[in-house]
């Protein structure tokens, strides 16, 4: 065999390997789409009996009664939204503070330990947050914090209704706090990373004009990293919406809508996790799957909204600089 032939064979082998490589990456990508499609189809298929039976009432009615076999998801949707919003309200300022501290203010020797601590917090399994919330946080809230909230904030005009009621220890407030602690690491890590991408020259020109750290953060760093921050916030929100285990421990699992944050309630994922083993009738099972569809839709809507916001920001030329 001449050397020219050997080289031709080598080239042919190279081409083949390249083709296999390309085909396998394509296959991996297609597999993902197929899986996603399969999930959607099987969810819809499983949820169909419930949707067919209750129609729009499934999302507008606040009934969840396995005895009479009537199901409406409103209380679960309400609980999901309330706990997530509460978690965002609590987590955002803290995460922002952590990110600012880590990127602008922390002395170098403190940066790494705090950064690692945040990553560790993100790695704690949610069930641990759940038992901690139930056995440690809930009693504290029940005995000292919630009575105070009821006694003081409960008397406020307009917003008072949010803070009135018996201190159960478990409920929307507890779930919101546990969720906030769980999403803080995610949001602060993402915000820290986007803050780190702001060019030093830009920050320095702010400092050079005599701006304080606060002014540089607020008027230079934040506008520059707005799109990345939205990404981090949405990541946190997505996690809060879907979080199951920890919430199931501390939400109280009551299918009810209460104005008060101190009252027990339920969320979509908590209801599914709690009741799957008890779902004895086909309609009950189907209703739980329908809950899953709703969660899917809500999460999808959040991501779509984030994308839309980023697009609009990009068009204004702010996301790209």
């Amino acid at each position: 065999m001449s050397s020219a032939e050997a080289f031709a064979r080598h080239l042919a082998g190279q081409r083949l390997r390249e083709r296999i490589f390309r085909a396998s990456t394509l296959a991996a990508a297609i597999l993902l789409l197929l899986l996603l499609g399969g999930v959607v189809v099987s969810l819809l298929h499983g949820a169909w009996p419930a949707f067919d039976r209750f129609r729009l009432a499934f999302i507008t009615q606040d009934v969840w009664n396995p005895v009479t076999n009537r199901y409406g998801a409103l209380s679960a949707i309400y609980g999901t939204v309330v706990t997530s919003v509460l978690a965002m309200i609590l987590a955002l300022p803290v995460s922002f503070g952590i990110a600012v501290f880590l990127t602008e203010l922390a002395p170098p020797w403190l940066k790494r330990p705090v950064g690692v601590a945040i990553e560790l917090l993100a790695a704690i399994p949610s069930i641990i947050f759940g038992i901690w919330g139930l056995f440690v946080l809930a009693p504290v809230l029940q005995e000292s914090v919630e009575p105070w909230i009821d006694g003081h904030l409960g008397k406020l005009p307009l917003v008072g209704a949010l803070f009135q009621g018996a201190p159960y220890g478990i409920g929307f407030l507890t779930a919101g706090i546990v969720l906030a602690i769980m999403i803080i690491p995610f949001i602060s890590a993402v915000i820290r990373d986007v803050f780190d991408t702001v060019p030093d020259v830009l920050k320095e020109s702010g400092y050079g004009l005599g701006a304080t750290t606060w002014e540089v953060i607020w008027k230079v760093v934040v506008p520059y990293s707005r799109s990345g921050m939205i990404g981090g916030i949405m990541l946190g929100l997505g996690r809060a919406l879907g979080e199951t285990m920890a919430v199931t421990f501390v939400i109280g699992n009551a299918h009810q809508i209460s104005a008060s944050l101190l009252a027990p309630g339920t969320t979509i994922s908590a209801a599914i996790a709690n009741e799957f083993t008890e779902a004895t009738t086909p309609l009950y099972t189907s209703s739980l799957i329908a809950l899953g569809v709703l969660l899917f839709v809500i999460t999808f809507a959040v991501i779509a909204a984030a994308r839309l916001m980023l697009l609009r920001l990009g068009r204004r030329g702010l996301a790209s600089v």
């Binding site: 020259v201 830009l202 320095e204 004009l209 005599g210 230079v220």
Partner: peptide
Amino acid sequence: VAQLRARIGMVFQKPNPFPK
């Protein structure tokens, strides 16, 4: 420090206008 820097203008190597 902020007050001090306000009395001293600084121009950098690369033009670095704010994204505004």
